[in-house]
């Protein structure tokens, strides 16, 4: 072996070693961050099966010998998880459906069609993005009361759709503006009306947008609590996150049950997430990325 090749070999070795080291460091960092995201959840779970008195022990993480599964039973029954879950779903399903269809139509009309008021409408849409929910709470309360939307799921659905209009329209508009006009033009030539063109030609081209928008709308409204808290008063209409807060008051002296309730409330989106994680991973941002 000549000196030259030896040198090259050594260089490669050095480089490879350097690469290995940086790879290990990288791995450590990645795992550390993963732990940061996961550990609190595991910790919360461990508390949920203890007795409240155990919480004050010095150990970091321990699983009790006699897990108090009864905490879950208490949380499930007294927290009325099933009832609130079905309420949440009956609000969230229409919100997600209309929260995607309406912005899609709006974005189509504003990006691809010609009309006078277009700039004004688009400004309203952009402005909608900046309005804080909290500004609208009291005026809406007063005026929903007048038009009979108060303490009804419909009132919440309308708010949820309204507050997803802006963001979702922007995402759709980004996607739609990239489609060549010839798509519609050729369809027009064949005499196809809009009600055929939109669902069968345009919508499929924006399919990534639909999944992005639907998932985002779902996650946002699943978490929503301040509007639900303000507008709903009848106990039987309440939604899931809201119930957690009430539950805290009810069980203010039983931390372990509170933790169990917390786990139960967190569970449904987590299950959905794991079931569809690959789709969510690509779908959640696809629309925004192209936009």
């Amino acid at each position: 072996m000549s000196n030259d090749t030896n040198l090259i070999y050594k260089d490669n070795l050095k480089e490879r070693r350097k690469k290995n080291i940086s790879k290990t460091i990288l791995m450590i960092v990645l795992v550390f961050i993963a732990l940061l995201q996961l550990f609190p959840l595991v910790w919360a779970f461990s508390y949920s099966i203890k007795t409240s008195g155990d919480l004050f022990g010095p150990e970091l993480l321990s699983f009790p010998k006699n897990p108090q599964w009864v905490n879950y039973k208490t949380a499930f029954v007294d927290g009325k998880i099933l009832k609130y879950l079905s309420n949440t779903l009956s609000i969230i399903i229409p919100s997600v459906i209309f929260g995607t269809i309406l912005p899609f139509s709006l974005a189509y009309a504003t990006t691809r069609m010609e009309w006078k008021l277009k700039p004004l409408v688009w400004t309203v849409v952009i402005a909608g993005l900046t309005v804080p929910i909290h500004t609208t709470l009291l005026p809406n309360f007063i005026w929903f009361n007048k038009i009979g939307l108060l303490d009804s799921h419909l009132g919440l659905i309308i708010c949820y759709i309204a507050f997803s209009m802006s963001f979702n329209s922007i995402i759709f508009s980004g996607l739609l503006s990239g489609i060549p006009k010839s798509m519609e033009e050729s369809a027009f030539l064949e005499g196809a009306p809009y009600r055929v063109i939109l669902p069968s030609i345009i919508a499929p081209m924006a399919v990534t947008g639909f999944s992005t928008v639907a998932i985002q709308t779902f996650l946002n409204h699943w978490n929503e609590f301040i509007m639900a808290n303000t507008y709903l008063s009848t106990e039987s209409k309440r939604t899931l996150p809201f119930s957690l807060i009430l539950f805290d008051g009810q069980y203010s002296s039983n931390y372990a049950v509170q933790f169990a309730c917390m786990v139960l409330v967190a569970l449904p989106p987590l299950i959905l997430y794991f079931a569809f994680s690959s789709k969510i991973m690509t779908g959640v941002t696809a629309g925004a990325v192209k936009g």
Partner: peptide
């Protein structure tokens, strides 16, 4: 007509729940 059908539902909802309170 098409434009109105596409735009109005969304805008009306925004007017009810966002513009009116503002």
């Amino acid at each position: 007509k098409v434009i109105a059908t596409l735009v109005l539902p969304g805008i009306i909802i925004m007017l009810i729940a966002i513009a009116a309170p503002i």
